[in-house]
Amino acid sequence: MKILITGATGTLGRQVARHALDQGHEVRCLVRSSKKSGFLKEWGAELVRGDFCYPETLTSAFEGVDAVIDAATARPTDSLSIKQVDWDGKVALIQAAKAANVQRFIFFSILDADKYPEVPLMEIKRCTELFLAESGVNYTILRLAGFMQGLIGQYGIPILEGQPVWVTGDSSPIAYMDTQDIAKFAILALEIPETENQAFPVVGTRAWSAEEIIGLCERLSGKDAKITRMPINLLRTVRNIMRFFQWGWNVADRLAFTEVIASGKPLNASMDEVYKVFGLEQSQTTTVETYLQEYFSRIMKKLKELDYEKNKGKKQKNKRSPFKNVNSQ
């Protein structure tokens, strides 16, 4: 199958591209810049320049394509807004897919998006789900909660470096999932008829609060976390201030998502039926414990090696030369 992947340079998109190639699919990646996507070409993917925010660039990207996996989303540093990328751009992408008669469109949404209409990204995801369902394109929607990869920058590295770990409001337990596991579900969805025109939660084996993640990182690293709590009202004030500046709109919209992860409401769902449909076992899914244990094991081993080399260098430097005594006599 020939698959067009958007957002292939991102945390999730690159895993989708890698797994699709490993499964023998022909992969084409829609990229805005070839500088950041060279690794995809090295893996064996075809790169095509384009941007779904500019629909006229999409025609050539869809030539001969059987399916689309959309893993793109706006980043806080983008010049375009969340609405421009995650709504206007996605509408153009879905319309282009319909015009090209693609067999399947895989869309990554967010769990419980319909429960937070005041949060821009959640509301846009909900509306995109509806637009896709009404487009006439055969689709599969995978509703995610959080990526394990994000735990490293948010908790792992700050704890190792003795930097503050920020916790906002009432920590919402989140069922984090490894992006490699998410990629498996995305590729399998292309091959299973029962997933056509359906939406599924795709989340980890259990939900973890910020406090539980911090405790696990402390145990695995042997270091104590410096926890700094930010009142949710202060964050709301910052968000409202950012809305006054055009350059701060993306940041403000992202800060609004904190309302979700600081509400105390779990982002989790039962996966029992999902595993049955996709023919997978829960035991095959990476757990947060395993993921963080592997990370800290690698880091702690590296730190010990660096410390050994550092001490070895000091000993050699302090070692007295035998020629020094000869010259002094």
Rank of each mutant, 00 (worst) to 15 (best):
S60P: 14
R126P: 06
P55E: 05
W249E: 11
L303M: 03
D272I: 08
A17V: 07
N250A: 11
D307H: 05
V251H: 00
A145K: 02
E211D: 15
T168G: 09
K90N: 12
L58W: 02
P173C: 12
E196D: 00
A74E: 11
G156W: 01
S171T: 00
F131T: 01
F131L: 04
Q329C: 09
M230W: 04
A113M: 06
Q246N: 09
E56Y: 04
R18S: 09
L306Q: 11
K98F: 14
N197K: 03
L144K: 07
G248Q: 00
P201R: 10
T195P: 01
Q154F: 01
E129M: 03
A269K: 10
E259F: 01
V48I: 14
A262H: 04
E191L: 00
G215Q: 00
A145Y: 07
L130Y: 07
I106Y: 02
L111S: 02
G136H: 01
V31Q: 03
S81W: 06
E46V: 06
E259S: 05
V238N: 09
Y139V: 04
R236M: 09
E26K: 05
A74W: 12
K265N: 08
G215E: 03
P158C: 11
P158E: 02
D170R: 09
G10M: 04
T9H: 13
E161S: 11
K314A: 13
K184C: 04
P173K: 07
L111T: 05
I141D: 03
G50W: 11
I106L: 01
S172C: 05
N325Q: 14
I227W: 00
Y308D: 09
P201E: 12
D22R: 02
K314P: 03
F105A: 04
K265Y: 05
R229K: 03
V251L: 05
G156D: 06
S60I: 08
A72Y: 08
P322E: 13
L151W: 08
G146C: 13
R219N: 00
I182N: 01
I5E: 05
F108Q: 05
V277C: 05
F39C: 08
T6G: 08
G169F: 11
K302H: 10
T286E: 06
W87S: 13
T59I: 15
G146M: 15
